[in-house]
Simulated scan of single mutants.
Amino acid sequence: MARAVRFHRHGGPEVLRIETVDIAPPARGEVQIRVRALGLNRAEALLRMGTYIETAKFPSGLGLEAAGIVEAIGEGVSGFSPGEAVSIVPPLSMVQWPAYAEFVTFPAEFVVKHPPELGFEAAAAIWMQYLTAYGALVDIAGLRRGEAVVITAASSSVGLAAVQIANRIGAIPIAVTRTSTKRHALHDAGAADVIASAEEDIRSRLEDMVGSNGVRVVFDAVGGPIFEPLTAAMSPGGILIEYGGLSPEPTPFPLVKVLTKSLTLRGYLVHEIIRDAARLVKAKAFILGGLADGALKPVIARTFPFEEIVEAHRFLESNTQFGKIVVTI
């Protein structure tokens, strides 16, 4: 028996409950982990509210990231031993493989030995943010040394990961955030420049930074009216990669800009990388290399104990955090 977070109906953070559940031994090809820390993601709040791309089956677990110690291994698993420190690559289904629990069981291909010096809190904040940013900027856009990249929702964990990855490549990360409140923190986090979208004209600021040629790569989690000034400041043949939809307003299709500049507007989910074994191997190598050389450093906004999972979700929905929210067990 072990404690796990579950919910029996859709709703706000208050629907989350800590319940005692049975623990099955790991099946063939699986690894069982004693969890020490969880990384929170907006996707989990969406599943809880009933607006995620996956449908909950009540009572439902949730969670995409965890770090801990190998408790047991199933038949046919090699490369792992009980007692080793590991972390979890986000699975394709958090309903099937939920991470919010004292003990979790995952297919071995989703389990990674992270650098032990990271500690469990940092290790629980690795894979979703860095895989998402790597897949967009490196795998899809082919971001190059010396070129600018626009990163919206830059103070989120994925936004900060994108800033770090751009710097590791030698690109120039331009952070877009709603207000100037986080301007200094974003500069300190490695942003070459910062635009406060509610206070400044995005198009004119970008044109001042990159000139009339425009920016080739835009990494956007917001959508909505911001599409117009972003595409207006893009270079011919540029690519805008959309991985979110934070804006509650409709997203216009910038037809004239797309046509005259031959722009690519591309939707993206990190599942593209996770379900492709060859691409995932390259992504892991890049991320582990960045962690080893210090270019990639998870930014922790705040930690909560497991017993305060409801408060952690309330903080997640406050949109005031700078970096990753972590829950410790």
Score class of each variant (00 low, 15 high):
residue 53 I to K: 15
residue 52 Y to F: 15
residue 140 I to Y: 13
residue 162 A to L: 13
residue 97 W to K: 06
residue 154 A to C: 13
residue 215 V to T: 11
residue 85 A to G: 01
residue 187 H to F: 14
residue 298 P to C: 11
residue 235 S to Y: 09
residue 317 E to A: 07
residue 66 A to N: 09
residue 35 V to P: 05
residue 219 F to E: 07
residue 242 E to L: 13
residue 288 L to N: 09
residue 304 F to K: 00
residue 152 T to R: 06
residue 170 G to T: 11
residue 116 P to A: 08
residue 137 L to A: 08
residue 278 A to R: 14
residue 163 V to R: 01
residue 16 L to I: 12
residue 275 R to I: 12
residue 15 V to R: 06
residue 15 V to Q: 03
residue 50 G to C: 10
residue 320 T to I: 10
residue 107 P to V: 12
residue 98 P to A: 08
residue 220 D to A: 07
residue 319 N to A: 10
residue 133 A to C: 12
residue 16 L to K: 03
residue 258 V to P: 02
residue 311 E to F: 06
residue 21 V to F: 04
residue 96 Q to K: 15
residue 143 L to E: 03
residue 175 A to V: 06
residue 71 E to N: 14
residue 133 A to I: 04
residue 243 Y to A: 02
residue 119 G to Q: 11
residue 274 I to P: 03
residue 228 E to G: 03
residue 288 L to V: 13
residue 62 L to I: 12
residue 287 I to G: 00
residue 127 W to K: 04
residue 287 I to T: 02
residue 79 G to F: 09
residue 314 R to V: 02
residue 100 Y to C: 08
residue 25 P to L: 06
residue 62 L to C: 14
residue 108 A to W: 05
residue 80 F to Y: 15
residue 164 Q to P: 08
residue 178 R to F: 03
residue 57 K to C: 14
residue 207 E to G: 02
residue 282 K to L: 09
residue 237 G to F: 10
residue 324 K to H: 12
residue 135 G to F: 02
residue 148 A to S: 15
residue 13 P to A: 15
residue 252 P to Y: 01
residue 18 I to K: 12
residue 293 D to L: 08
residue 125 A to E: 12
residue 230 L to Q: 05
residue 87 S to E: 04
residue 194 V to G: 01
residue 80 F to V: 05
residue 296 L to R: 05
residue 62 L to E: 03
residue 34 R to P: 05
residue 111 V to T: 11
residue 221 A to N: 09
residue 277 A to K: 15
residue 112 V to C: 06
residue 177 T to L: 01
